[in-house]
Design a protein around this nucleic acid. Structure first.
Lengths: 234, 234
DNA sequence: TCATATTTGTCCGTATGTATG
DNA sequence: ACATACATACGGACAAATATG
C-alpha cells in the first residue's frame, strides 16, 4: 500500500477532524480515482495512530460527502464525488421549511429554469440531431407512461448536456431529485398534465433553432410549476 | 424533551442509516429550528435503542451535512443547513482533478457568470440606491486593500441578493469559496489586477440601468478569469 | 453447498477533555 | 477551586456481510 502520512505527534490523540484530513490527503497525494480501494480500518488505525472509533467516525464524515464509499464486508473505496450531499441537505431544508414552506422549492425551480433559459443560445448551437432524437425518444416514453419521472429527469439532463458543463448537469439532476422528493410532502404534484406537450414544444423550437421560441417554450414549461407553487403559497 | 420515535423492532440492532433517519425525523416532527438543542448522546441511545457508536457515527454523518452541529462539551444542536457540504465536496473534487485539472474551476466560473448575466434584467430592476451604495463601499474597500478577498466575495453576493433567491446567494458564495480554495493549488491567482475597475464598471452600468452595458460589464469581469483558466489548460 | 478468511458493523466499559454553574 | 454534565477518545469483543476456495 502507498505511504500514508504518519502521526508525527505521538503521545497526543488525533482529533477526528485531523483523521479525515489525513485520509483526504492520502487520496490526493496518491491521486486515487473514484472506486480505488483505501486501506482497511485497521491499517488506517495503525498508520494514523488513532483508535478504530476515531477512524470510523472520520470515514462516516467523508462517506456523507461521497468522498469515500464504504461497502460492508468488502472495504472502503474512493467515492464518486457526486452531489449527493447537496441533495440530502437541500431535501432536508425543504422538508423543515423554517417559515415559508415553499421558498426552497420556488428558488430551486428558478435556478433550473435559469440553467435552460440563460444558456438557450449555447444549447441551440450545440444540440446535434442525435441528441434531438434522444429527446424525442424520452418524450415518447413519457407519452407511453413508461417511467415518466425518470424520462422527465433525463430530458432536462440531456437538454443541458450539450453545454459540456458537468457541474450544470449534476446540479440539474440534483435539483430535480430534491424537487421530486420534497414536492409530494407539500401537496404538490410531480407531473403536470401537459408535460409531454410542453416538452415537445421545447424540442420543436430547438430543432428549428428558434432562439426566441425556445426561450418561450422553456418559460411555458416552468410557468405552471411556478404558478402552482405561488398559488400554494397563498 | 419532546417525544422521540422509539425503536419498535426490539431485539434487532438499528442500522446507522436508520439512526440518522430517526434523528432527522425527530427534528422534522418537532419542527426544530437551526440552533435548537437535540437530546444528548445518551438520551438518543436510550430512545433509539442503539449504542453510542451507532449514534455517534450517525451524528457525524448529519454533522457533515450541517443538519446537526456538535459543540464539544456542550451538546448537539440543529445545524444551519448551509451548503458547507457542497463546498467541501467540490473543493475536494477540484483538488483531485481526475483528468482535466481545470475543468471544475472552469465550470464553476461559468455558473457564477450565468447567475449574474442570466439574471441581469431582474437584478437591474431590483437593485435600489442603498444596495448600489453598498456595492460602492465594497469596491472602495477593495481599492484600499482592506480585506480584498472578503470584499470581492461580498460584492458578488450583494449583486445577486436583490433577486430574493436565497439559494442563488448561497451557491454564489459556495462557488466563490471553492474557487478561492482550489485556484491557488493550481497556480492561479485569486485577484486580477483590474478587479476594482471591472467591478466599478458593473456598478456604473447597474446605476444607469443599462442592461446591455451591465451584461457586457459582467462578461468583461469574467473574461480574464476564463482566459486565464483556458490558458493554463494548455 | 459449505467452510473460512477478510472487512466492516455494532456494542460496551472506561478514561479524558471541555464547558457550565 | 470544585462538582457536574457532556462530548471525545480508546480498546476489545462479537455480529454481519462479502468474497474465495
Amino acid at each position: 500500500m502507498p505511504e500514508l502520512v504518519s502521526n508525527e505527534r505521538v503521545g497526543r490523540s488525533l482529533l477526528r477532524e485531523e483523521v479525515s484530513e489525513r485520509i483526504k490527503r492520502y487520496i490526493l497525494d496518491n491521486r486515487l480515482r473514484p472506486g480505488a480501494p483505501l486501506p482497511t480500518e485497521n491499517e488506517l488505525c495503525a498508520a494514523l495512530g488513532a483508535s478504530r472509533s476515531s477512524v470510523r467516525e472520520a470515514i462516516k464524515t467523508l462517506d456523507a460527502l461521497d468522498i469515500v464509499e464504504v461497502r460492508h464486508g468488502h472495504g472502503t473505496y474512493v467515492g464518486e464525488l457526486s452531489l449527493s450531499a447537496l441533495v440530502e441537505g437541500l431535501t432536508f431544508r425543504g422538508l423543515l421549511s423554517p417559515d415559508d414552506e415553499f421558498a426552497v422549492l420556488s428558488e430551486l425551480v428558478e435556478v433550473r429554469e435559469l440553467f435552460e433559459r440563460g444558456n438557450a443560445e449555447r444549447i441551440l448551437g450545440a444540440l446535434d440531431t442525435e441528441q434531438l432524437a434522444g429527446l424525442d425518444e424520452l418524450v415518447d416514453r413519457m407519452d407511453r407512461g413508461e417511467d415518466t419521472a425518470g424520462a422527465d429527469r433525463a430530458f432536462h439532463s440531456m437538454l443541458v448536456h450539450p453545454l459540456g458543463n458537468e457541474l450544470v448537469c449534476q446540479l440539474t439532476d440534483a435539483f430535480w431529485d430534491v424537487y421530486t422528493t420534497v414536492a409530494p410532502h407539500l401537496g404538490l404534484p410531480i407531473d403536470e398534465h401537459d408535460t409531454v406537450a410542453l416538452h415537445r414544444g421545447i424540442i420543436d423550437a430547438a430543432r428549428a433553432e428558434d432562439l426566441a421560441g425556445f426561450t418561450k417554450a422553456v418559460a411555458a414549461h416552468y410557468a405552471p410549476l411556478r404558478h402552482r407553487i405561488s398559488a400554494a403559497r397563498g
